[in-house]
């Protein structure tokens, strides 16, 4: 069975860019779901089978950190891995994301090679 990914970023352009990078990294998914914030992401996780989430941190309504916190409290979805993709480079915020269950982080800007290097082993 193929894998499904959920891209969470408030910029639809950034979601397209991530999608393009995934293709160029040679990583293919059966389904690419998209969400504009943490709330939309939770709603998608409730009804779709998602293998990995790639999430921004700074977003309106529900940011990436609150999304991780909320997700960690829901037994049915808490084990789905989340990889952060953000311009945030501070150890504090990445550390907080990891303590809430994020499996890693990709710093923007990123190359397809970087995406492959970090995301590849997680699939």
């Amino acid at each position: 069975m193929g894998k499904n990914v959920l891209l969470v970023d408030d910029s639809s352009t950034m979601r397209k860019i991530i999608g393009r990078s995934l293709r160029q990294a040679g990583i293919s998914f059966d389904n690419i779901f998209e969400a504009g914030d943490g709330l939309e992401a939770l709603a998608i996780l409730e009804k779709e089978r998602v293998d990995i989430v790639l999430s921004d941190i700074n977003m309106p309504n529900m940011d990436g950190i609150s999304f991780l916190r909320e997700k960690s409290m829901r037994d049915d979805i808490k084990d789905i891995p989340v990889l952060m993709i953000s311009t945030e480079t501070g150890d504090d915020i990445i550390g907080e994301a990891k303590s809430l269950g994020a499996v890693g982080a990709i710093k923007k800007p990123f190359t397809p090679d970087k995406v492959n290097e970090i995301l590849g082993p997680l699939l």
Binding site: S11, S12, T13, M14, I17, T87, K108, P109
Partner: peptide, 13 residues
């Protein structure tokens, strides 16, 4: 337009 908004955003970052 979206791409140039996003590039401006990244450079500002």
């Amino acid at each position: 337009k979206d791409a140039f908004g996003e590039i401006a955003n990244m450079i500002a970052g």
